[in-house]
């Protein structure tokens, strides 16, 4: 019964299309990951986690890039639509980063014999996770939503620009203590694996796009509910003051 209102949203039909497409492509990606792609010569079936892990990492990074752009947009234009975009994307990015860290651990345990290694990519991902966790802590610790949006925008900009610097520094730091190498080098990968990875990447990107659309409208609706409460209170107050004046 509530669907009547959501259908009115701009781009709703298109988003539904994207969502359906995401489902179809994801189904294909899963089939390819488990059936079509060959088992890795060295790692066996465990390597199939790669088709979840790598696309998630790339898309998480894309999500934080969108948050970065949203932050710049908000600080520049002061229009809260930018902030709604930024926080919607940061949330998906944080969830995806969590999945990346967990799936990486699950993959690392049988292959490297350890849940964790201080490799540049892992370390950078972990720090990224902490930065965007701080992003949401910051938001929840500031009571004025307008101020929270400004602060979050700043952290979103700092965090994103910091990523390549963190990566470089951890990379150089590790060169003295070489850890296990994660890279499943593109050249060594059979063509079927590359195709499967690309399909999985497409599926993950579509899921991100669909979730971003949903999250964005939820965030927007939250703000509109707050506006509504504000207006309701204002109207009630105006009535009270009128009545008070006429007494």
């Amino acid at each position: 019964m509530k669907q009547g209102s959501t259908r009115g949203l701009p781009g709703w039909r298109f988003a539904q299309g994207v969502g359906a497409l995401a489902g179809v492509v994801m189904a294909i990606a899963l089939y390819m990951a488990f059936v079509y792609a060959p088992a890795d010569a060295l790692q066996g079936d465990v390597q199939r986690i790669f088709y979840l892990h790598v696309p998630m990492a790339w898309v998480a990074f894309l999500a934080f890039f969108v948050t970065f752009i949203g932050g710049i947009g908000y600080l520049w234009k002061r229009h809260r639509g930018w902030d709604q975009l930024a926080r919607a994307s940061a949330e998906i990015g944080l969830v995806f980063t969590t999945i990346v860290l967990l799936s990486g651990s699950l993959w690392g345990k049988p292959i490297w014999g350890t849940w964790w290694t201080w490799d540049a990519r892992l370390t950078t991902t972990l720090l990224l996770w902490f930065i965007y966790l701080a992003y949401f802590m910051l938001r929840s610790y500031v009571s004025d939503p307008e101020r929270a949006a400004r602060y979050a925008a700043v952290l979103g900009i700092f965090g994103f620009i910091d990523v390549p610097i963190i990566y470089k520094s951890v990379d150089w730091w590790r060169t003295l203590h070489p850890g296990p190498v994660v890279s499943t080098g593109g050249a060594a990968m059979p063509g079927s694996m590359v195709v499967t990875l690309l399909v999985a990447l497409a599926a993950t990107t579509l899921i991100y796009a669909y979730m971003l659309y949903q999250r964005f409208w939820i965030e927007r609706t939250k703000d509109e509910i707050a506006d509504y409460h504000y207006r309701l209170y204002e109207r009630q107050l105006a009535r009270e003051m009128r009545e008070g004046a006429s007494v």
Binding site: L127, A134, L138, S169
Partner: peptide
């Protein structure tokens, strides 16, 4: 930023340390 928030003593290091990691690594190296 942290000074206007609730629990600023907690929030400040949580904001600062992850972003400052490259400084820590480089300086120590």
């Amino acid at each position: 930023m942290a000074s206007t928030t609730r629990a600023r003593e907690i929030l400040f290091p949580v904001l600062l340390f992850p972003v400052a990691v490259p400084v820590v690594i480089a300086t120590v190296r």
